[in-house]
Simulated assay, not measured.
Amino acid sequence: MNEAISLIGAFSAGLLGGVHCVGMCGGIVGALSIASPGARPAARLPMLFSYNSGRLLSYGVAGGLFGALGQLSLPLQQVQLMQSVLAVVAGIMMLLLGLYIGGWSRVLRHVEIVGGYFWRLIEPLGRGLLPVRNPLQGLLLGMLWGWLPCGLVYSMLIWALASGSAINGALLLLAFGVGTLPNLLATGLFANRFVSFVQQPRMRTVAGLMLIAFGVYTLSRAVF
Score class of each variant (00 low, 15 high):
residue 1 M to F: 03
residue 4 A to F: 12
residue 12 S to D: 04
residue 13 A to D: 00
residue 16 L to N: 04
residue 18 G to H: 07
residue 19 V to Q: 04
residue 19 V to A: 14
residue 22 V to S: 07
residue 24 M to Q: 10
residue 25 C to W: 03
residue 25 C to S: 08
residue 26 G to F: 02
residue 27 G to P: 11
residue 28 I to V: 15
residue 33 S to R: 00
residue 34 I to T: 14
residue 34 I to H: 07
residue 35 A to V: 09
residue 37 P to C: 06
residue 38 G to P: 10
residue 42 A to K: 13
residue 44 R to D: 06
residue 45 L to K: 02
residue 45 L to I: 15
residue 49 F to R: 01
residue 51 Y to P: 02
residue 51 Y to V: 00
residue 53 S to Q: 04
residue 66 F to H: 00
residue 66 F to C: 13
residue 66 F to P: 10
residue 68 A to T: 07
residue 68 A to K: 05
residue 69 L to T: 12
residue 77 Q to N: 15
residue 79 V to S: 09
residue 80 Q to R: 12
residue 82 M to R: 09
residue 85 V to P: 11
residue 86 L to N: 10
residue 89 V to G: 05
residue 89 V to M: 08
residue 90 A to L: 05
residue 93 M to R: 03
residue 95 L to V: 05
residue 95 L to T: 02
residue 99 L to V: 03
residue 99 L to K: 09
residue 99 L to H: 09
residue 101 I to E: 09
residue 102 G to S: 10
residue 104 W to L: 14
residue 111 V to Y: 12
residue 112 E to V: 12
residue 112 E to F: 08
residue 113 I to P: 00
residue 118 F to K: 06
residue 121 L to F: 12
residue 122 I to Q: 00
residue 122 I to F: 11
residue 125 L to F: 12
residue 131 P to K: 13
residue 132 V to S: 03
residue 133 R to L: 02
residue 135 P to K: 05
residue 135 P to Y: 05
residue 138 G to N: 06
residue 139 L to M: 10
residue 141 L to M: 07
residue 144 L to C: 07
residue 147 W to T: 02
residue 156 M to Q: 08
residue 160 A to H: 04
residue 161 L to V: 01
residue 164 G to D: 07
residue 167 I to Y: 02
residue 173 L to E: 06
residue 173 L to Y: 00
residue 175 A to W: 00
residue 176 F to L: 14
residue 176 F to M: 13
residue 178 V to E: 02
residue 180 T to E: 05
residue 184 L to S: 06
residue 185 L to A: 13
residue 185 L to F: 15
residue 186 A to D: 11
residue 186 A to R: 05
residue 190 F to G: 11
residue 192 N to D: 13
residue 194 F to G: 02
residue 195 V to C: 13
residue 196 S to C: 03
residue 198 V to D: 08
residue 200 Q to C: 06
residue 201 P to E: 06
residue 203 M to S: 11
residue 204 R to K: 12
residue 205 T to S: 09
residue 206 V to F: 13
residue 210 M to S: 12
residue 212 I to F: 13
residue 213 A to G: 14
residue 214 F to H: 08
residue 214 F to I: 08
residue 216 V to T: 01
residue 223 V to Y: 05
